[in-house]
Nucleic acid binder design. Structure first.
Lengths: 324, 324
DNA sequence: GCATAACATGTTACCAGTAACATTTTCGAT
DNA sequence: ATCGAAAATGTTACTGGTAACATGTTATGC
């Protein structure tokens, strides 16, 4: 900035004013400043403001995984709000590991972020301590935590899972198995919904899970294990669409008819489900709306607003496709 | 930090020393500092160092898309190097748009990043200007640019595409169509490889493309358009596995036999290809190795090392599966 | 032509760490 | 006990932008 000021023949303060309130600078000076800045390729540092005012005009977003399609839509929703509001988004990911989440929180706080969006509601003691000390607005998204740190935006995964299992039961399926991969909180809540629906129908629950990450090929392997454990199975409810798509392809490769011989449902309604034949039954989750609302509420909180209801439920819908 | 110093009964400088070189602090003092830091949940700010030394111990990574599985492996490779080296990674994404890439570069530079990894080798004038002024190490990955900004790590997409098309030709396919989505640089280089292989075989090229993002269902639609344009087509080479998987599922839904009636190949060898029946032919790209090498070379450059060869070719392999 | 308001620009101090240098404390050797 | 070196700790200044205040410059009205 000093370089720009020297070339324009003014003080740093005038350059600073040009950037924050150009109408306070004489038009001729403004023109010359603009020229010099373009010529030098000058980029104002946001570091001094972080130091002096503890503000960065940046928010942090911690995602469990970078390879999960679900969060691409969430991120898009977030940025539709943050970009016009002048906030930069710093992303981090932690591989579904609470310790690494805490580490990422420390890293983001060291950049003096103004607010933080978390995709999990299960945190280490250390993470909670740091967030308390930092005293910045925090928003937990995806779930509906019973005791949120501050605000939360999400949906009821248990209710959604139960609704889908009930749809399968209403079509006459009885031996429905739940297929789960990497055990995070949402996987467990969906399992609760599955168990609740099965037990309400007077049926026994069967859960097959792996600690590996969700992949298409993992779906096929889980199906094979389920068939071994429950030979008469007539349906699988999968914790997500990757597993479900893999199970559907594997079932068809075995010569099974979907849904006549086996009914298959997933969660999140990703594009893959529409390319399959039959189209995959799945829970439509409002990912984009969650991202938008999370960012809106976080920025409102940064600006000092308060919300009467700290937890917002954005609901879900069922897409039944042709696979159940 | 002042709070910690006050509680310990020492000056800020001793706290600072404890963090950077604990062996210079008396053991008793060190113990008390550790206790107080844990009690307060103190996180050192990296902002003063950014200001004073223009170092942040953070590098930027700009990805075209957050929803592309390919970059999940790249990111993992990067972090395997950066985390042990004590660097934090700041991610940004720009939706395959060079203007937004420039904007993201400006944002990252405002955080005084020590180095930058780009996933594209096509940049705006403004971006190049800013990078020149910032004078930080820059590494372009994925491609093998003819005139890199500084270093580059990647593979020859044109050669890889030609190799796959030649494999299809060697199995007797003649009417092979190239299916492309969103036109980025790599899509075009793969198209060049396809055209090169076809013309070397004395065959005409046919390209079907859309500006929409690559999705499974888009693969089905592109196949339908290809069939309308080239009724006798006996193979499709797809710019990536999402398109290829969608095309394969759509072909099978039409009752076509793969590969007897139609041969299908993709690019990147994602997990979906292994779940399909037959398994999808695809180019195996060294994504993980690209991430690792990119981070290693960038950090080496940050530490002042130089490389004789600025561009590193990590090669590719073909996975033929059963679909060609 | 001059007072005065409105506008334009400049000066100083501050934020949280740390490099460089300064000072105090400890401890072993004589 | 005293000295000198090593160990431990403290002081000062600096980084880049900006808030708050100070000063300079131009325009307006009479």
């Amino acid at each position: 900035m000093q370089d720009v000021a020297d070339l324009v023949g003014t003080s740093k303060m005038t350059i600073s004013r040009y950037l924050r309130a150009p109408e306070l600078v004489a038009p001729g000076t403004a023109t010359r400043i603009a020229e010099v800045m373009a010529k030098l390729g000058y980029i104002p540092s946001r570091v001094p403001e972080m130091l002096a005012n503890d503000r960065s005009r940046a928010i942090g977003v911690l995602l469990p995984s970078m390879s999960n399609q679900v969060f691409a839509a969430v991120a898009q929703g977030i940025e539709e709000v943050t970009v016009p509001a002048g906030y930069h988004v710093l992303y981090g990911h932690y591989g579904y590991d609470a310790e690494r989440e805490a580490e990422q929180i420390a890293q983001l706080l060291s950049f003096h972020i103004d607010g933080l969006i978390l995709a999990e509601s299960n945190h280490t003691e250390r993470a909670l301590k740091m967030l308390g000390v930092a005293a910045i607005p925090v928003l937990e998204m995806m779930d509906l935590p019973a005791s949120p740190i501050d605000q939360a935006v999400g949906l009821d995964h248990q209710a959604a899972a139960a609704a889908m299992v009930n749809a399968m039961l209403s079509r006459g399926k009885r031996q429905i198995v739940y297929l789960a991969a990497r055990l995070d909180q949402r996987t467990r809540m969906r399992e609760n919904g599955y168990r609740q629906a099965m037990s309400a129908a007077g049926l026994a629950s069967h859960v097959i899970h792996t600690n590996a990450a969700s992949t298409f090929s993992q779906g096929g392997e889980l199906l094979a294990r389920a068939q071994a454990a429950v030979p008469q199975l007539d349906g699988v409810f999968c914790t997500n669409d990757d597993i479900a798509a893999g199970a559907l392809l594997a079932a068809q490769a075995q010569g099974l008819r979907v849904p006549e011989d086996i009914s298959i449902a997933g969660f999140n309604h990703l594009d893959i489900g529409l390319a399959l034949q039959p189209q995959l039954a799945s829970v439509i989750t409002p990912r984009h709306a969650i991202g938008r609302s999370a960012a809106q509420r976080l920025i409102a909180r940064i600006n000092g607003e308060t919300f009467a209801a700290p937890v917002q439920d954005l609901g879900f819908e069922l897409f039944l496709g042709g696979s159940i």
